[in-house]
Write a protein that binds this DNA or RNA. Structure first.
Lengths: 345, 345
DNA sequence: TCTTAGCACTCTGCCGGGCCGAGTGCTAAT
DNA sequence: ATTAGCACTCGGCCCGGCAGAGTGCTAAGA
């Protein structure tokens, strides 16, 4: 089972996969025979295909239809057979322009990119921003939001802006707030939020009584704002592209499952989990992904990073019959682009 | 055509509409006959239904099926026949709790509410936040985001936080920035963003040379940040609910149109336009809405406000065969809730 | 030993006919 | 004005037959 293929077998497998990617229909021996550079009759191809089926790379939806690739077949194709196409210059330029246009901050960059990526690929594009936990603070600032609420605004490396309201009994003067700001910035800049949280807790012990009320206040406010757990944000663009895929358009059940998954943040997070930490593009085919109940989709995703730290991931979601040779370079390039753009934000 | 109905006609129309809302199937005379409190034979009902059809309230999908309501029929139902149900206490409580939980600001409030509303109604819920143009500033603040970028953070009444990056040649010291902040806040607080923009332009003329470089700088920065046009933000929850509607589940074309519309911000904005300014719940049935090409959906929406100004709208999107008697109170209550919650944020 | 032509077989998709059920419109009787 | 009765219409479903695509097997050829 699933042993190494000889040259001819590999060639046939590749043609079957590519034809199936294009047409979404079972592929017959005649079709392959015509496409082979080395002329072989349909009968021979049939023998080869029967072998491939035995090895687990192909299967038949029913006795006397053509063959379609199995998950294993797709996996072999992606690993060994896929012709790595270059990304056309036009697409590179488009993507570059899109990421450069994000003016209001990191969110904007990421949204533009995912929007365009979904358009170019005709699949759904997902971006995970796990901004909080790994990024250094550029500045932190407390603003009065109302008489009994204070707003904490943190600007993170990469141009992300994170804010949170803190309930607070009134009575803090504006000048005091400003002093607190100065103090907080002093200890905070350059740290990540969890690091800052640790530091605050330490400071509070160390200088418990020695420093004035105001600083204790500052620390308390900071701690309060940072207690909440930090999960990632998710953006999805091009959901409707899913409907264009014949395998989903014909099966309402699958469609429902997928669109429901899009509405659950944690499902999406799980789908892109693997990509987050890795440098290279990750491909998860069908039931390879960690989410139960979505065996009909593939995910092609890559992490992006700012400097040394991985701060998010971007990926495309489509049917198992995805156009991997086109999609992998697209995702790869976009992730690189995000990394370099965000680093300078 | 579409004249006033006598009592009997109205009663039949109402039963037809309600049965159709429930079953999504054409309604026959026998069904109505059984449901009528005043016992009438199917034959009589048939006559009445034929009249209703002549008047434009009903139609037949084909010669020998039951009747289904037309858009006009639904409109008559909504205007005159609909029994205004009370919202169950449990749902009110749920909604109340959801809106109160929005801690990180206005966005959070609105998201929670729309999420819950879509769950309760089983339709798609849309919220439009046209935050910028009408809301007074609580505070405004410039922060250093990187060596050549400054972040403007504006906190608006209602707890909305708006931020924008401004490109800026380096060289502005932190103390200078703080002074600018003080100055900006002085002139800005209490104004809406467009008002502030006007004010800034005036100030610049007036005190052109008299004030120091720093203040000119402040004004310039402020002006720069406010040039961009201010369109609303859109949140959509419960898209997948659309798939549960049989009229869409069976017609891929309609489904595609609707899901594509969900991806276009401006389409959604247009759909909820009418509701924004009005106090009451707006119902737009089928082709009544201003968006061409979506004659199969109805929108039930209401504006919400903060103090005097309308600042957004919330609505449900579903098939024409929507459960109006349930949905209208839901939307109404949620809009009120948003108004009162946001006012105190 | 590998390849291939030929052939029988299988399965799907499609078309047409017949039947059933639901519902209508009309007519005539109450 | 209401209603029972009846003929009619139409969609949905099931069935059988047919065409097409594709297979597996066998036996012949290189």
């Amino acid at each position: 089972m699933t042993s190494v293929l000889d040259d001819r077998g590999a060639r046939v497998l590749r043609l079957v996969v590519e034809d199936y990617i294009e047409t979404a229909e079972p592929v017959g021996s005649r079709t392959i025979s015509k496409k082979m550079e080395q002329a072989l009759s349909p009968a021979t191809i049939r023998n080869i295909m029967a072998d491939l089926e035995e090895m687990g790379y192909l299967c038949q939806p029913h006795t006397s239809a053509g063959r379609i690739p199995t998950g294993v077949g797709f996996r072999y194709y992606v690993n060994y057979l896929l012709a790595r196409r270059q990304l056309p210059r036009s697409e590179r330029d488009l993507l570059k322009k899109a990421t450069e246009e994000g003016l209001t901050g990191g969110d904007d960059v990421v949204r533009q990119a995912s929007r365009l990526l979904s358009n170019l690929s005709r699949y759904a594009c997902v971006v995970v921003v796990s901004r909080f936990s790994h990024q250094a603070l550029r500045s932190i600032s407390l603003l009065r939001a109302s008489s009994d609420r204070i707003l904490l605004v943190a600007v993170l490396q990469g141009g992300w802006v994170q804010h949170r309201l803190i309930e607070e009994e009134p009575g803090l003067l504006n000048e005091e707030l400003e002093k607190i700001n100065g103090y907080l910035n002093e200890i905070a800049v350059g740290l990540t939020l969890p690091q800052l949280r640790m530091k605050i807790l330490n400071e509070m012990k160390k200088e418990k009584v020695r420093y004035d009320k105001l600083m204790r206040k500052a620390l308390l406010l900071g701690a309060k704002a940072l207690t909440e757990s930090l999960s990632g944000d998710v953006y999805i663009e091009g959901r409707a592209n899913i409907l264009e895929q014949p395998e989903f358009a014909e099966d309402m059940q699958k469609l429902k499952r997928i669109l429901h998954a899009f509405e659950e943040k944690h499902v999406i997070l799980r789908l892109l989990d693997a990509a987050l930490e890795s440098e290279a593009v990750q491909v998860s085919i069908g039931s390879e992904n960690t989410v139960e109940g979505l065996p009909e989709i593939s995910v092609v995703a890559s992490g992006y990073h700012q400097g040394e730290v991985a701060t998010g991931s971007i990926g495309l979601i489509g049917p198992v019959r995805m156009d991997y040779s086109r999609v992998i370079p697209l995702v790869e390039y976009t992730a690189h682009l995000l990394s370099s753009t965000l680093e300078h934000r």
